[in-house]
Design a protein around this nucleic acid. Structure first.
Lengths: 212, 212
DNA sequence: ATATTTAATGACTAATGGTCATTTTTTAAA
DNA sequence: TTTAAAAAATGACCATTAGTCATTAAATAT
């Protein structure tokens, strides 16, 4: 009885194909502007078929977001590996986030979209759940850097690495969002360069974490 | 020639009425779910008339957002006045943001929407520009608190109050956004209470700013 | 060769932001 | 007061698009 297995494989493959096409279309036209018809045409399938494989448009968004979060996580990991001391690792992570924004603006927008939304009742095997899992791991990378810093004495030992990792994740996203969305306002109203705001943020974080 | 003046007054009044109605409708149904037809019906006007007074739906959103930002700013001001030392003022602002989220969740969502969007070519007299102005003043309140802290010696004097105010605004928004949108994930994946994350954040900020 | 199950289709619906020719109301002129 | 011109308001209409479902096509089993 190898036929059911083969069919399951084919179905899974088709699903993957759709995701890949959707990612191309969404990143090219922007999450909001790309329509399901666009995706269907690019995938050389009817729109109805898309809905056989994905509950709705948001599920397809989630697939793109997932790729973005994965890229971000891997950049964080590379950053951690590139630095020696714990405090340097943390700063490297910050720089990695800024690089991510610069090098992958589309993915950045996707990840920001994920951060902004509340996805209700995300089935356990859904793509949204996978995004949550990736986010968790990403925060885990931060936590590891903090722990390394506490071990090597470059980060004060009275902070809770797990909690601080979540805090850093949230506040850094806030800063990147501000720089990305309100860069012009920052310049016009506050006469500040967004880059300077970001580096000022890094300085403040470092000061808040550093031992001694 | 008093007629043009009277007509201008009436037009302005009608505009105000529409804004007030729109605010009621948007806050009741949620920004996304409320339709222009809803607003038109509530305002006892035809939909076409709405578009005589506002360019599009986003302009009406902006009116609601403006109210929200005004409330937030006034809460910040009250917080600053309630505290003595500079560092206490900063913490009070943080608490005020958390209270704003709790007491005015609809306005909080509106402000968050504003923070997330990039409004292109916002005419100088538009509501979006007014939001920008309010944001500017809100950040100004933070900057004043920081300056007070530097003066009274409770905040270290090597920070740039203007820059740090923007940084605080951005990162605090990020934390509030995380707590608001990903509270469940924080609980499920990291076994942390969002409230604890927020207070942990406040602690970290205080440590980063405090003198001595 | 036929029946059954599975996969795919695309015409259709519903919702909604936005428009515009037409109507109503107000003001100015005769 | 009557009529013409200007301003304000209307709502039927359009375009877009997410999502559905009866129908068709393809694959599999009998």
């Amino acid at each position: 009885m190898g036929i059911p297995e083969r069919k399951a494989r084919e179905k899974e493959q088709r699903r993957r194909d759709i995701i890949q096409t959707a990612e191309r279309v969404f990143l090219a036209k922007g999450l909001k502007k790309a329509t399901m018809d666009d995706v269907a045409e690019a995938a050389e399938l009817s729109k109805g078929t898309l809905y056989l494989y994905f509950k709705n448009k948001e599920e397809l968004y989630a697939a793109v977001i997932l790729q973005g979060v994965k890229v971000l996580r891997s950049m964080f990991e590379a950053a951690v590996d590139s630095a020696q001391s714990g405090i340097e690792k943390v700063r490297a992570i910050g720089r990695a986030y800024a690089d991510f924004h610069k090098e992958h603006p589309d993915y950045f927008d996707a990840v920001l979209y994920y951060q902004t939304q509340t996805f209700d009742s995300s089935g356990r095997d859904s793509l949204v759940a996978a995004c949550n899992s990736q986010s968790d791991e990403t925060i885990g990378v931060i936590a590891e850097a903090l722990k390394a810093g506490i071990s090597d004495g470059t980060i004060r030992n009275d902070i809770d690495p797990s909690k601080a990792a979540v805090v850093l994740w949230g506040q850094t996203t806030g800063i990147m969002q501000l720089a990305s969305r309100k860069g012009n306002e920052i310049r016009d109203w506050h006469h500040l360069n967004p880059e300077d705001v970001i580096s000022g943020y890094f300085d403040l974080v470092e000061y808040g974490l550093k031992a001694e």
